[in-house]
Amino acid sequence: MRTALPLACALFLWSAFAGCEGAAEPSRVTLPLRADASGLSPAESDLGYAVEITEAKLSVADFTFATPGELHTRWLRLTSVARAHPGHYEGGSVIGELRGRFVVDFMASEGTLGTATMLVGTYASANFRFETAEDDAAPPLAGHTALLRGRASRDDASVTFTFVVDAPAMRELVGAPFEATLTETSGGALGFRLLSYDPRSDATLFDGIDFFALDADEAGEIIVDPTSEGAASEAYFELRRRLLAHDFYDVRHLPEE
C-alpha cells in the first residue's frame, strides 16, 4: 500500500498532464456510406449552358470525418490525423473513418461503399483521397480518377460531353462539409454527394466551360481528357480545379426512413 500510493498519485498526475489520454474510449456508431445522386441536379452555368449530368464516377479512398475547429493531433486509436501541407488546418480532429478504395458511381441506385466507423459527436467536415481507378474498371474511367458524362444545352442547341479527369498523385480533398451530430442510436446512412451547384459560392461545376466552342467539328459530341490540347486543355483544367475543390462535395447524414 505504501509503495502503491505514490506511484498511483504520480500516474494520476501524469495522466492529467497528458490530457487524460487514458480516459475511457468514446462510444461509437457504424453507418453505411453510400453514393448520393441528389446533388447532381441540372444546373445552369455562368456561360448560360443548361448542364445535365448523366454519368458521374469517381475513384477515391480513405474517407475520414472530423469535428469542427482547428486540426489537432490528439487521440486516436481509430485513425491517425493526416495533415495537408500547405493547405493548413482545414478541419478539426478526425473521429470517424471508412478506409479502402472505392469507385463511386453517383448515379447508381445502390451505391453503398462500406460501413464507416464513427465516434459519437458533432461533425463538421469530411476528407478523402483521390485515386486512380484500377485497370479492371470500366473504360474510360480505368486508369483515371473521374468520369463525367452529360449534355449541355443553350439556345435550342446541345452537345453531349465526356470529361475524363486525372487527379494529382495522392491528392487529398480536405474539408467537404459534413454537418451532423451522431449519437449511439443514430441510424440510417451517410450520403456522399458530388454537387453540380455550390450554393455557398453560387458556382457550378462547369462554370467557364464553353461547350459549343469545344465542339470544333460540330459533331455534337465533345470528349475532353488529360491529353486534350488548346482550348480543350484549358477546359480540362477548369473542370479539374473544381473537381478537386471541397465546394463541390458534401456528406449528409440520412436518417432512417
Binding site: 495537408a84 493547405g87 482545414e90 494529382p168 491528392r171 487529398e172 480533398l173 480536405v174 474539408g175 455550390d198 459560392s201 458556382a203 484549358e234 483544367f237 480545379r241 473544381r242 478537386l244 475543390a245 471541397h246 465546394d247 463541390f248
Partner: peptide, 13 residues
C-alpha cells in the same frame, strides 16, 4: 490562367 497548377481543396475561386 492557372493551367495545371492545383490551388487546393479550398481553391475553387
Amino acid at each position: 490562367g492557372l493551367g495545371a497548377y492545383d490551388p487546393g481543396s479550398d481553391g475553387a475561386d
